[in-house]
C-alpha cells in the first residue's frame, strides 16, 4: 500500500463526502486547503481528480456554494461555503456514519449487542 494513501480507495469513496462537509462546517475554504485538512486528519492524500468532482456534485446538489476570490500574488481560488441544506446533510450523514462505525466495530471485534445501532427500516407501504 502506498505510503501517501493509508486507506483502501473503496472506503474513502464512501466517507469522503461527509468528511468534506465536516471540513466546510469550520468555515469557508478552498479545494487545496480541504485536501490538506483531510491529509492532516489522517485520511491520506485526496487527489484533485477525486476532490473537485465531489465538490462540483455538492455544489450542484445545493449543499455548498462557491465563489472566486483573487489570490494574494498568486492565482485566484474558488472558495466553498456550506449552505443550510449542507449543514442538514452533514448532521444526518454524520449520525449515520457514527452508527455505522459502531456497528462495524462491534461486529469486527466479535461483539453482539448492536441492535440499537441498526438502521431504521422503512416500513412504509408494507402490509401488516
Amino acid at each position: 500500500m502506498p505510503s501517501d494513501q493509508p486507506w483502501p480507495s473503496e472506503w474513502l469513496r464512501g466517507v469522503l463526502e461527509v468528511c468534506v462537509l465536516r471540513v466546510l462546517e469550520d468555515g469557508t475554504t478552498y479545494g487545496y486547503a480541504i485536501a490538506s485538512r483531510l491529509a492532516d486528519g489522517g485520511l491520506g492524500v485526496v487527489k484533485g481528480g477525486t476532490l473537485y468532482p465531489l465538490l462540483n456534485r455538492l455544489e450542484a446538489a445545493g449543499l455548498v456554494e462557491a465563489e472566486w476570490r483573487a489570490g494574494d500574488g498568486g492565482p485566484g481560488r474558488k472558495y466553498y461555503l456550506l449552505t443550510d441544506a449542507g449543514h442538514q446533510e452533514l448532521q444526518n450523514t454524520a449520525d449515520q456514519w457514527s452508527r455505522f462505525t459502531r456497528v462495524t466495530a462491534s461486529i469486527i471485534s466479535g461483539g453482539h449487542d448492536v441492535a440499537e445501532d441498526k438502521p431504521v427500516q422503512d416500513t412504509s407501504g408494507v402490509e401488516s
Binding site: Y30, Y32, K47, G48, Y52, G71, G74, P75, G76, K78
Partner: peptide, 18 residues
Amino acid sequence: SEVESHCNESGQSAQLAF
C-alpha cells in the same frame, strides 16, 4: 483555473493530481 490553483499550491503536476 481551479486546476491551476491546485497545481500552484500543491506543487503537483496536473497529471499527478488530476
